[in-house]
Design a protein around this nucleic acid. Structure first.
Lengths: 203, 203
DNA sequence: GAATAAAAACCGACTGGTAGGATTATAACC
DNA sequence: GGTTATAATCCTACCAGTCGGTTTTTATTC
């Protein structure tokens, strides 16, 4: 028997799941509360019972999704033994068959467009980026300690690696006709590998 | 005395300039035709005389802006003598005091969010990316010919360089509190420099 | 070089539809 | 029977696009 709180949790997950799907499909401006309510098997009124405004719902949905992606990133990374392979463990970001990928990129683009103007969304984006960077930073740090990565500023390096993934993802997703998956994987591998190599002696 | 066509050109530029400002400010979904009309010193009706729909106007504005940025990129690049410095000539993208920068990023984010769903905008994005890549590709090619860049696939390399710029720009613009301009410049310089260096011998 | 006709540019009120939020009604449950 | 959950309406604001009409410009004619 579901207690009060249980039902609330269930409903909220239901709604957020539906919201994520619809948001991904249509974008935060074009999606309507009715769309989301219907997709969640509720009416608008029912939805209003759990989320008092569209803003609130949308933000909750984004936050939920970013958390999910972060967790997944962490798990994937943890399965890699050595630091460098950890840094290169994000190739799942470039897989058309992955449901998170198909759902996620439109959401991410939306979030960025919102973040370009709205400080609240900027904070959301910041948090997400931050968690990702911390993850990478640890790996860089470990790599330095083990001597497989040359001494450097781990934080700056982690940010650069993260940004490279992001930049390549952008192109891969939005301009797929000229940016193949092979290109994406090859490019991030090469760029990141070189970024954590010793600088070659002067020619 | 202005001929027919002259006035039309003037007005269209007027409108597009106003549209770009307003689009950058508010985003394509939140901006209204009235806003743009007013900013252009026209009424809604007057605006309708030149652009038959919001869609059309927005797209024209984006296209115009991307053209402008491309031209600027080209000019900046052409002023660099050697191939590698050409590849590194985009540091103006990370300058808060640049008006194109302040205007441009919100536009770019909007365009990407639109492109994530709408093929028309995807085509726009594609064209812009393409022009940029061609520019970089030429420099890479020249570098290979001159022997300052190791043999490689110039197109793939150009795409990677371009994506790196873009990725770093993203972070720099959206998460400014943890991504300084110094970080941005240092990171793209390092990443791209390494990307066009000879691979160091095995350790 | 006026006078007039024709066309282009422009205005602003109106319309139809939409969507977010609020209110009210109803069902379920303790 | 009162509290919670949900549905069904309603209200209001907003906005893209339209359209009749007005002003301004251009062309034409005498």
């Amino acid at each position: 028997m579901a207690t009060n709180t249980d039902l609330e949790t269930i409903r909220r997950t239901q709604i957020i799941t539906a919201a994520l799907a619809k948001l991904s499909e249509a974008g935060s401006f074009e999606v309507t509360l009715d769309d989301i309510a219907r997709a969640a098997g509720l009416s608008k009124g029912g939805l209003a019972h759990y989320f008092s405004s569209k803003e609130e719902l949308v933000r909750a949905a984004f936050r939920e999704f970013f958390d999910r992606i972060f967790l997944r990133s962490k798990e994937t990374m943890d399965r890699c033994p050595d630091p460098v392979s950890k840094l290169l463990s994000f190739s799942w970001l470039y897989n058309w068959d992955d449901p998170d990928v198909n759902l996620g990129y439109p959401l991410l683009f939306d979030c960025m467009a919102l973040a370009a103007r709205d400080p609240e969304y900027r904070a959301l984006f910041h948090d997400w980026v931050r968690s990702w960077i911390v993850l990478l930073e640890e790996a860089v740090h470990e790599g330095i300690k083990r001597g497989v990565i040359p001494k450097c500023d781990p934080s700056g390096k982690a940010k650069a690696i993260s940004a490279i993934y992001h930049g390549i993802a952008l192109r891969w997703y939005l301009d797929r006709e000229s940016h193949s998956t092979e290109w994406a994987v090859r490019s991030f591998t090469e760029a990141i590998t070189r970024l954590v190599q010793n600088i070659p002696k002067k020619r």
